[in-house]
Each structure stands twice: as C-alpha cells, then as structure tokens.
C-alpha cells in the first residue's frame, strides 16, 4: 500500500504540487520577475507531469540499439517525451519574451513592482 502511495505522489501529486506552487507564486507575488519565475515553475511542474505519464514499469528508453534490437513491450512511452520536448521549447520561447518585456517595463517605468505599476496600468 505504501508503494502505491509513493507512486501516486511521485507521478501525480508531486508534479501537480510543483505546478500549483507556480500558481501560488502568481497569486501572491508582486514582482514581475518573480512572476516570470512562477510561470517557469508552473511549466516545470507540467513538464514533469507529462514525463511521468510516459513512465512504464521497468522500461527501456524508446530507442532501438544493439542491446534492444526488436520491439519489446517494455519501452517507455515516446509520445509524452516528444510532447515535453515541444513544451520545453515553447516555454523557453515564452520565458525569453517575458524577460525582455520585463526589461522594457523596467526601463520605461523604473520599477518591476506590480503595486507601483498598478496606477499606470489602468
């Protein structure tokens, strides 16, 4: 039973918690850079979640090699891995953009604090 709990934690609740930590950051943080970091944490949580969904018990990497020459039903699921690859790249792209945006906001308004930007925002 303990084993079951552990697997649930590591495959589902753990990644989700990381995701929600990011969300918590967005709920409470006022600094634009911290918000960008929160978004990144969310993305990490999501990526971890996706990868963990591809886990197959005692599986090999989905690559044919000299050692694994033919199809065995013990390969890990390649699809989530491919999805994660795409998701990572997209999150990198968004991060690059959002950081550049933060720099511009800082140079224009002189602050990255949302409470101070609040009046200008509306």
């Amino acid at each position: 039973m303990g084993h079951e709990w552990l697997s649930l934690w590591s495959f589902l609740y753990g990644p989700l918690s990381i995701f929600l930590v990011g969300l918590y950051g967005l709920l409470t943080q006022k600094n634009l850079i911290k918000m960008a970091i929160s978004i990144n944490i969310m993305d990490y949580g999501v990526n971890l979640f996706i990868i963990s969904l591809g886990y197959v018990p005692s599986a090999e990497a989905p690559i044919y090699t000299d050692a694994v020459k033919t199809y065995l039903p013990v390969f890990a699921d390649p699809l989530p891995q491919a999805l994660v690859l795409t998701a990572i790249v997209i999150s990198v792209a968004v991060t690059a953009f959002i950081l550049a945006l933060t720099i511009k906001i800082h140079s224009q308004y002189g602050t990255t604090d949302l409470t101070k930007l609040g009046e200008m925002e509306l």
Binding site: V46, F49, I50
Partner: peptide, 8 residues
C-alpha cells in the same frame, strides 16, 4: 499550462 495538463 492548464491546456498541457489536460492534453497530457
């Protein structure tokens, strides 16, 4: 992010 969780 929500979309990814749902899709996966």
């Amino acid at each position: 992010a929500f979309f990814l969780i749902a899709t996966a």
